[in-house]
Amino acid sequence: MMDLETLQTIWFVLVAVLFTGFFFLEGFDYGVGILLPFLGKDDRDRRTVINTIGPFWDGNEVWLITAGGAMFAAFPHWYATLFSGFYLALILMLVALIIRGVAFEFRSKSDNPTWRNLWDWGIFFGSAVPALLWGIALANIIRGVPIDRNMNYVGGFLDLLNPYALICGIASFSIFTLHGSVFLTLKTKDALHERAMSFAKKCWAPATLLSFAFTVYTFLETDLFARLGINPGIVPVFSVVALASVIVLLQNNASGWAFAMTGAAIAFSTITIFLGLFPRVMVSSLDPEWTLTIYNASSSAYTLSIMSIVALIFVPIVLIYQAWTYWIFRKRLGTDSELEY
């Protein structure tokens, strides 16, 4: 059996990997959901837009469920402090996820235009709210929130809505929207493709600016960069380069590469945040002593070893069959495509 400290590090990395995978994958289907009412001009358009993520979104969302489960199992105090502390924000997130999940299923079960329109806006709401809230939540985790000596959050809901967190929320919202629009350029054809392309090009500048603003604000507001040092390493730099390259790739119609780059920007930003956080998991703004770390928030060595074995076997299997899904449904969709289901 490995020693406790190694196991705690492994599980920090695994939780980070799960969140990174989640933001990369669910990021584009949040984006597609946000764009649905705007890029889908008529019902057939909208069905096509939904079908681009239809086979994937549910599997993508399981990344979050698994990340939540992994947090609970590996770092129970992190799970308990985060969820009880960010109570109302998370209730709002759950409401959004509920509406989103059923909207995909319910919208097509009736022909009534009002019914469909209602659920399309449900998909928008259910995608936009988490896209915003994830940024807000992450920003607060690294900036620090009032956590007392008993690992309990003692702030209120409004404490979470500080300017820094809001900027991060808007930045994550815009990046996910960009990621979604680039995904649509990759998966659609004809008029829909044109619309997605033109939107992606327009969306790039504000998304990049907001990410830049967030980076500067992070420098001022948190110790993230101080911890990463003068030479922050390749990760954050690559995140910036990836995002910058998107516009060039889009102008050259290289949708596939552009998608890889928006994805890389999201993935590397997430990794940067987790790197800056390590070994802390929730920063206490009241007293550094009260900060939750992988050492004081974790489960026992035995539990972590069991979980490691399970993860070692099953994470690769999941990756293989999820990759297979993307392979099966690799074709572009047009409004003239056979929209089975």
Partner: peptide
């Protein structure tokens, strides 16, 4: 109980729920 109770929940997501949703 996180040390114990979280484990089956995490395994449920990883072993079952992923499979169910993806397929």
């Amino acid at each position: 109980v996180g040390d114990i109770f979280g484990v089956p929940l995490a395994i449920e997501a990883l072993l079952a729920f992923f499979l169910e949703s993806t397929f």
